[in-house]
Computed example of a mutant assay.
Amino acid sequence: MSTTIALVVRPRGKPIKNLPEETTVGREDSAAELYKLIAASSKISVHRLKITKGSDGSAIPNSSSVTVQDTGLRNKSTIDVKDLGPQISWRTVFVVEYLGPLIIHPIFYLLLTRPPSELQTISLLMIMLHFLKREYETLFVHRFSLATMPALNIFKNSAHYWLLAGVNIAFWTYLPSAPTAKAANPVFKYAGVAMFVVGELGNFSNHLTLRDLRKPGSTERGIPKGLGFSLVTCPNYMFETVAWLGILSVNWSLSTAIFAVAAVGQMAVWARKKEMRYRKEFGAEYKRKRFYILPGIY
């Protein structure tokens, strides 16, 4: 049996009803167990809590692989507990985000096209397949390192897909006067479809690789290897870019270009952060990448 220690508990920010002034936990217990103890005492969801050390404000992870002793807490140490407010699962947020284009595009396609052109139909199919794939990955492929996010974030996160990828692209793609209403250029049509297929398959392959780096219920990751990982930090973003360039080659819509630029810009920020994290986390074991998302460009 591990030696127990007493911790002084303080609220951080707004008061938390039923928060104990002190709690007892084993030195060899996991940090996740500490979260469960505080949650049970406070009668609040464990996902709403953030615990930090009173001495320096450093975060204590809600992790089963980190012990209380590993965090540096000792007998009579002080911990600060913050209520993060209502939370919602990352998986739910992703499902809702991607649902927007899946609802909006068929509605605009049916209402605006008279009759639909070949390019308008191909555009619809490509976008539907793209977001159906994302929904599938959300439900059956992705493993999330964090269980929840603030509930209100669902509105901010969904706006990007419901408005920019949904209403924005759909309206300008399915209008009778849109470039997609004209006769298809075989070169751009077939090249676009080919780029889309390569991009989606490559992206899916990368997501399977990334999933297998993390065991179920774990936040630990390994160094990704495989398709494209020797070229850039995040080949999944590279293939995502290729897929959207394929869609743009088919519909030649400024609205699609605007969404693609916004999406690639955000992915570039994420990719650079991931490269920095890999360098810090794995040190000399990790082969540093010169390009984060697009070989020879960025």
Rank of each mutant, 00 (worst) to 15 (best):
N206S: 13
L49K: 04
F171D: 02
V66N: 00
S218V: 08
A284D: 15
A184R: 00
K189R: 15
K156M: 01
F291A: 07
W162D: 08
P176M: 06
P106L: 09
P235C: 03
F229E: 04
V250Q: 04
G57E: 12
N157D: 07
R114Q: 14
V193D: 04
P176W: 06
G192H: 02
H142F: 13
V95L: 14
M149R: 13
K53Y: 06
N157C: 10
S30I: 03
S255G: 05
Y298R: 11
I169L: 11
I51K: 10
M276Y: 05
V232S: 08
I293T: 10
L139I: 15
A284N: 15
S58I: 03
R290H: 14
K225I: 00
I247L: 08
N153P: 06
V141I: 15
N75E: 15
F239P: 05
V193S: 04
A191K: 05
E28Y: 01
Q120S: 12
N251W: 08
V232K: 07
F108C: 14
T121E: 12
A262T: 11
P115E: 10
A147N: 14
F204M: 12
H160Q: 11
P20C: 08
E118Q: 14
G85S: 12
A271C: 07
L231S: 07
V141G: 00
A40W: 02
A40H: 14
A170Q: 08
Y161K: 08
L37S: 04
R288M: 12
V167H: 06
E21Y: 09
K14F: 12
K50Y: 06
I154G: 00
H207T: 00
S41Q: 13
G166N: 06
F259G: 03
K133Y: 06
S65A: 14
N236P: 04
V81N: 04
S205M: 01
K215N: 12
R290T: 13
T148D: 10
G265T: 04
S177W: 10
T138F: 08
H47N: 13
M128P: 01
G26A: 13
L227N: 05
I247M: 13
W252S: 14
A271F: 01
T92M: 11
